[in-house]
Design a protein around this nucleic acid. Structure first.
Lengths: 193, 193
DNA sequence: ACCTGAACACCGTTCAAGT
DNA sequence: ACCTGAACACCGTTCAAGT
């Protein structure tokens, strides 16, 4: 709030004329940015869904603070609704039954959002995000590699696979997992399909 | 930090003798709490996996601040490793190929963590979390119900399904989606299976 | 050597006082 | 009626000074 106010050459109190709190400000900024998502192209639905979700992911990676905000307070602005609609539309185009597709939208966007939030340094010391990222990765790697084979036999046996793959490979795999699972798993709710 | 220090009848500076920062303190507390997860029982692996993940979810729902911390800084303490090991072991027991199971552990725990973080009020005004929860739900419901049928036709057509299901039903469905997808989706990495 | 009081550098939010 | 300076009530972290 204080930084935004400063950029607008006023005091932080002035912002409260337009937004109720920081969460609302974040939501408004995010919805504005969502207008910049690439338009739908041509090609198979699966590819277009990938492009759309990656576009959203890129946006959230660029502004990790917004990813954290979007996680606790779901975006409900006009552009966010259009994003939901596009994801839902693509799943339906792919032949996913409506009830599964409806719940699946939530899951896909939750994954993209939380993945972006996860790979983000905590807000304050935002000076060197990639150094922080490396520190986190090597802390995890060290913990897994020095795992006790007695206490955690499966981890010890499969360290290389636990740590394997590039971030891009893992994201691609995870999206495939989600879409496959969504298409294959009936909901408990009766309804059209 | 200040609250913890006060509970220990000292100043906040004293804590920095034992931890480097707030993130480390959170990680230590979480790992301590993870020791209280229920032991593995008997029955089909799928049920035991559900019980384990729900136990973790309950813990994170009880301390939403820890869920947010665990999201940005992965737990790597001894008890966290045991949790990874148990989840990995159960997937392997279920016949999931090792490479998929290894990546799947990450995804399952990310989902549980981010779901807990999502359903948590922002830290400061933690007075009435359920009121905040209701406000968020009705804001989402209102946004979806008043969706423009022109701009977002799929959303307009499937509002009831988008909003349908109890939280418990959605969690159960999502876990099924994840496990189904994990078991069915080959990784891009060559290796044992 | 180990601990800590006090200060530093921030936050978001409120409200009385201004125009 | 609309805007905002200044204050309030917090944070996490540092470091010089104490024991």
């Amino acid at each position: 709030m204080r930084r935004v106010a400063q950029a607008l050459d006023t005091g932080p109190a002035s912002l409260y004329v337009y937004v109720a709190n920081t969460a609302e400000l974040h939501a408004a900024v995010l919805d504005e940015l969502l207008a910049g998502l690439p338009e739908d192209g041509t090609g198979p639905w699966r590819t277009r869904l990938d492009v759309l979700l990656r576009g959203y992911a890129d946006l959230l990676f660029t502004y990790p603070g917004l990813a954290r905000s979007a996680l606790v307070l779901r975006p409900v602005g006009g552009n966010a609704l259009r994003l939901y609609d596009r994801v839902l539309g693509l799943l339906l185009e792919g032949g996913v039954p409506a009830d599964r597709a409806a719940w699946g939208v939530d899951l896909l966007l939750l994954y993209v959002t939380s993945n972006a939030a996860e790979h983000s340094a905590p807000a304050p010391g935002d000076i060197d995000a990639s150094a922080d990222e490396n520190a986190k990765t090597s802390a995890l790697e060290h913990a897994l590699r020095s795992a006790d084979a007695e206490a955690t036999p499966h981890v010890a046996l499969h360290v290389d696979q636990l740590l394997g793959g590039t971030p891009a490979e893992r994201v691609a795999w995870t999206l495939q997992v989600l879409i496959t699972g969504i298409a294959a798993t009936p909901t408990t709710v009766a309804g059209d399909s």
